[in-house]
Amino acid sequence: MENSRTVSFGRAWERLETWMELHAPDDYRALQLPASSEAISAITNEEFPVCSELQELLRLHDGVVDIRGGADPGSFLPSGYGLYSARRMRAAHQRMVENVSWSIEDGTMDDVIGKSAHVKWVPFAGDVTGQELIIDHRPGSTYGSVMEYDESAGRYEPKWGTLAHFLNELTEALENTGRVGYLAPRLRGDSLSIEWYIP
């Protein structure tokens, strides 16, 4: 995981959005209007503020249009994830809170808390299979990191030190025909939108 905090979120998002406007206009048009301050505050039921980068993203775009299939415009993040709206983030975070509560009630908290759920984790993107990307809001060195489920470890793990680093790596792959992990991007043949594949 990248630990440096020097990458600017504003610059990272501007690069990505500019690239999409020029090369993947269907994905660009899938971006929604900004979220309201009230909707952003409601994500965690005002128990804690979402991190500044996530707030900044939502003030630019309240996620993407609803994605019903893996090839739909808007699923431009690696593995076909699409950005959630503030409303969907709130629902996803509430599921996290409920899963933690249920695990405490049935005595399975050691298998759940900090592995598949945590009250300080905020899902911000998802795919059509139900997999999600999460931003960690626990105090400490991983605060603000982007987490993805690691099948080999059987738990969510921090993969990028900040949302800005995640977006920067994504855009580098788009601009330079590179990769994010084992995935490479390309434009779909039937639409001007991004898909990710294993070369």
Results as ranks from 00 to 15, higher is better:
residue 69 G to T: 10
residue 165 H to G: 00
residue 21 E to W: 09
residue 99 N to Q: 15
residue 106 D to Y: 12
residue 103 S to T: 00
residue 52 S to D: 12
residue 71 A to E: 12
residue 141 S to M: 11
residue 84 Y to F: 12
residue 115 K to M: 07
residue 143 Y to N: 04
residue 137 H to M: 07
residue 194 I to F: 07
residue 96 M to N: 02
residue 188 R to K: 04
residue 96 M to D: 04
residue 111 D to L: 14
residue 42 A to H: 07
residue 198 I to Q: 11
residue 55 Q to A: 04
residue 100 V to C: 01
residue 101 S to G: 09
residue 22 L to M: 08
residue 36 S to L: 14
residue 55 Q to V: 08
residue 128 V to T: 15
residue 119 V to P: 02
residue 176 N to V: 04
residue 139 P to I: 04
residue 149 Y to S: 06
residue 157 E to P: 00
residue 144 G to M: 01
residue 13 W to V: 05
residue 156 Y to L: 06
residue 45 N to M: 14
residue 175 E to K: 00
residue 24 A to I: 05
residue 24 A to V: 09
residue 171 T to W: 00
residue 125 A to V: 03
residue 121 W to C: 08
residue 143 Y to F: 14
residue 124 F to W: 00
residue 118 H to T: 03
residue 192 L to F: 10
residue 172 E to L: 14
residue 182 Y to C: 05
residue 149 Y to Q: 06
residue 88 R to G: 02
residue 22 L to G: 05
residue 109 M to P: 02
residue 51 C to I: 09
residue 142 T to P: 04
residue 92 A to F: 06
residue 27 D to G: 07
residue 87 R to I: 05
residue 5 R to L: 09
residue 10 G to T: 07
residue 62 D to R: 05
residue 128 V to H: 09
residue 156 Y to C: 00
residue 107 G to M: 13
residue 130 G to M: 10
residue 177 T to Q: 03
residue 114 G to Q: 11
residue 75 S to D: 04
residue 196 W to P: 04
residue 180 V to W: 01
residue 77 L to Q: 02
residue 15 R to N: 12
residue 129 T to K: 02
residue 32 Q to K: 15
residue 109 M to G: 06
residue 38 E to Q: 12
residue 174 L to C: 00
residue 151 E to H: 13
residue 194 I to W: 01
residue 23 H to Y: 13
residue 172 E to W: 10
residue 168 N to E: 11
residue 153 A to H: 06
residue 33 L to W: 10
residue 107 G to Y: 15
residue 107 G to L: 14
residue 82 G to D: 05
residue 2 E to Q: 13
residue 135 I to E: 01
residue 67 I to G: 03
residue 6 T to D: 12
residue 173 A to P: 03
residue 78 P to F: 04
residue 147 M to D: 01
residue 143 Y to V: 01
residue 159 K to G: 03
residue 37 S to I: 14
residue 14 E to L: 14
residue 33 L to H: 11
residue 36 S to T: 15
residue 171 T to Y: 07
residue 103 S to N: 04
residue 175 E to L: 12
residue 187 L to G: 08
residue 104 I to W: 15
